[in-house]
């Protein structure tokens, strides 16, 4: 008793409603731009890297910030693929897979930079920064590093803002995480600049301390995203794309169920599959008349509530055995053995 919104062809090709397609295309363009620009920043930082810890940390963060755009672009290409015999649920989850990888990379690199810098601080290893010859002039490499950092950080902030707006409209988690990372890039850049200035005035420890701050930021990002991505894989109750609160759709569907008088009791269970939600609605019908028609009509109606709800199965049951959303066990509506139909 599954239902799908009418579209051409056997499957819904697009996850997104028509009116959001231009936004999606814009997001893809922005992510390509981010990818190319970050790549140039990574190359530039690598050329000026030297032996500064803070610089290394900033470089690693830039390197990692290539991952979310790449994940977004790969997932954008994969998510609309048709289901196949091998992947009967389609490819929506490619987004979740990309998300897990990106989050894990953040976490591991954050930990690496943290321990590396802490070790250098404890063993009092002093970063040497010499001169570089540029256009026949000998310049202290520190100045060149600061220039490279500004190049890598400043435009990222504006890209981040633009993407944040799109992420809100598209309800896109990967895009949101990426935008947050770009927007926070100025913190990394400032910390690294302070570290290099510290070396400049002879405070050798400033560099390692700045690197530790940056690593804490990376770790925090990594932890937050790892948690969210594991929750997705565990089919946790859907949250808004910015994870601030539960997605209101579950409440809304339950309200809709309550409005129908042929339904004695009803429950909703939704999971996130990448960008979209799928799940079941269990209903305990009062009577069996026209049950199939009613179920079908209900499924149509529920799918029309919100574009993120992609696939819903409405199942008639005698008793509801999934926990209610406030976590209390449900008082059974009918005093029979819990037997699921159909």
């Amino acid at each position: 008793m599954t239902d799908r919104r009418e579209t051409e062809g056997p499957f819904r090709r697009f996850e997104l409603p028509e009116e959001l397609l231009p936004e999606q295309r814009k997001a893809v363009r922005l992510e390509w731009l981010t990818l190319v620009y970050m790549l140039s920043a990574v190359v530039l930082l690598a050329l000026t890297l030297g032996q500064s810890q803070a610089m290394k940390a900033a470089w690693i963060e830039d390197l990692l910030s290539l991952l979310p755009p790449a994940a977004f672009l790969i997932a954008s290409a994969m998510r609309t693929r048709d289901p196949s015999a091998k992947f009967p649920w389609g490819f929506h989850r490619s987004v979740s897979v990309a998300y897990v990888f990106a989050a894990l990379a953040l976490l591991v690199m954050g930990a690496y930079v943290f321990f590396d810098s802490a070790f250098k601080l404890v063993t009092a290893e002093r970063p040497p920064i010499g001169v570089i010859q540029l256009f026949g002039e000998e310049i202290w490499l520190g100045w060149v590093m600061i220039g490279a950092l500004v190049y890598s950080g400043l435009p990222a902030v504006f890209l981040g803002r633009a993407k944040l707006k799109l992420a809100d409209e598209l309800h896109d988690k990967v895009l949101y995480a990426d935008a947050q990372m770009n927007k926070a890039d100025w913190m990394t850049v400032s910390a690294a600049i302070v570290g290099i200035l510290g070396i400049g005035v002879g405070l050798w420890w400033a560099d390692a301390v700045a690197a530790i701050f940056i690593s804490l930021d990376i770790l925090h990002d990594g932890w937050k995203n790892m948690r969210a991505s594991v929750h997705d894989l565990m089919d946790a109750r859907p949250r808004r794309h910015d994870a601030r609160e539960f997605h209101p759709i579950v409440d809304r569907i339950e309200d809709e169920l309550r409005k129908l008088d042929w339904i004695e009791d009803g429950a909703v269970r939704l999971r996130e599959e990448g960008h979209v939600f799928t799940g079941e609605v269990l209903v305990v019908p009062r009577e069996d008349d026209h049950l199939v028609d009613r179920l079908e009509e209900l499924a149509h109606h529920l799918l029309s509530l919100e574009w993120k709800v992609y696939d819903i199965v409405v199942v008639p049951v005698r008793e509801i055995d999934i926990p209610s959303r406030d976590g209390r066990p449900r008082s059974s509506a009918v005093g029979e053995e819990p037997a699921r139909s159909p």
Partner: peptide, 25 residues
């Protein structure tokens, strides 16, 4: 505001009488 602070710090360090870079020892 943070960006302005950083820019000021860079200018201040560059403009001050101290030598850049300095030796810790």
């Amino acid at each position: 505001r943070a960006a302005v602070c950083i820019a000021l710090a860079v200018v201040a360090v560059a403009a001050c009488a101290c030598r850049i870079p300095e030796d810790p020892d």
